[in-house]
């Protein structure tokens, strides 16, 4: 449709250029709405992730935390809205993102070793048809070492403990050398050593100016672990530096009756 009206045309031009200002952000989301069949799961999410942020995505079960990551990656269809990664549509920015899926979504019986899995993170750089070389495996081994898993390199992945599996997938994300990391519940059900390792790695990444979005379920540790929070319950309740976005009021808003006030206090939310 051609627009003859000068005022409307002006507005449209404004809007067409509007996102550019935020478009350099590692992740820019505008009006993102996702629905399964005809029930909305994410409602008009607006969000801009800061460069070098270590961001916790927090919210009750079914709040759409995993759906948000999947929508960013284009793994679930969206009804409305826009996602930009470093100013580009997701299709053109895939090499700058690494994704660590939930443990339950992986076929742990697959005939492959820990080192193999980490090496897969390099496939993008290796390119079509070319084989995995010794130097690629060495690089993958270094990443495994970075998460303290070098001695398990030849182990079939199903024979690792839950925490070890999580570290292998983190090492794979490291091998991808991405600037934006999306991690879906990496700290769920892992041992203390793994938790410490993962946090160290995430902080290193932050120090290098990379950005990480981490779906997190444990309210008690949010303030210790993350400098930014995105509080989600179908819609974006609050987003920003932890001290501002993770407060008693926002938590009440997100969790409603599902959380006792004492639990919110215990979470150490600022007020």
């Amino acid at each position: 449709m051609r627009v003859d009206n000068p005022i409307l045309a002006e507005r449209m031009r404004e809007q067409a250029t509007a996102p550019i200002g935020a478009a350099d952000a590692p992740l820019f989301i505008a009006n993102l709405t996702v629905a399964y069949a005809d029930k909305p799961a994410l409602w008009a999410i607006d969000y801009t992730a800061p460069v070098g942020g270590l961001i916790g995505i927090v919210g009750p079960n079914g709040a759409g935390k995993s759906t948000l990551l999947k929508a960013v990656l284009g793994l679930v269809p969206t009804v409305a809205g826009e996602v930009r990664v470093f100013g580009r549509p997701i299709g053109q920015a895939r090499e700058r993102i690494a994704y660590v899926p939930q443990r339950s979504s992986v076929d742990w019986d697959f005939p492959t070793t820990a080192l193999d899995v980490v090496a897969m993170g390099l496939y993008g750089r290796i390119g079509w048809f070319k084989r995995v070389r010794r130097r690629h495996l060495n690089f993958a081994l270094e990443r495994l070492d970075q998460v303290g898993m070098a001695e398990f390199a030849d182990r079939q992945i199903g024979q690792l403990s839950g925490g070890q599996q999580q570290r292998v997938f983190l090492a794979r994300a490291l091998a991808q050398d991405a600037d934006l990391m999306l991690l879906d519940e990496p700290l769920a059900g892992v041992d203390a050593a793994t938790e410490a390792t993962i946090l160290n790695v995430l902080r290193d990444l932050k120090a290098q100016g990379r950005t990480a979005l981490v779906v997190h379920h444990d309210l008690q540790t949010v303030t210790d672990y993350f400098d930014h929070v995105a509080l989600l319950n179908g819609r974006m309740i609050a987003a920003g530096p932890t001290g501002e976005a993770f407060t008693e009021a926002t938590l009440l808003d997100a969790y409603g009756g599902r959380l006792a006030t004492s639990e919110i206090r215990a979470a150490g939310a600022g007020d």
Binding site: R94, E95, F110, M120, G121, Y123, G124
Partner: peptide, 22 residues
């Protein structure tokens, strides 16, 4: 032989394969 790597990654983890350009 030629597509071993591509077949392997897309079989094991379709999302990663997509992300890496396969």
């Amino acid at each position: 032989v030629l597509f071993y790597k591509e077949l392997k990654i897309s079989t094991f983890d379709a999302a990663l394969a997509d992300a890496l350009g396969y």
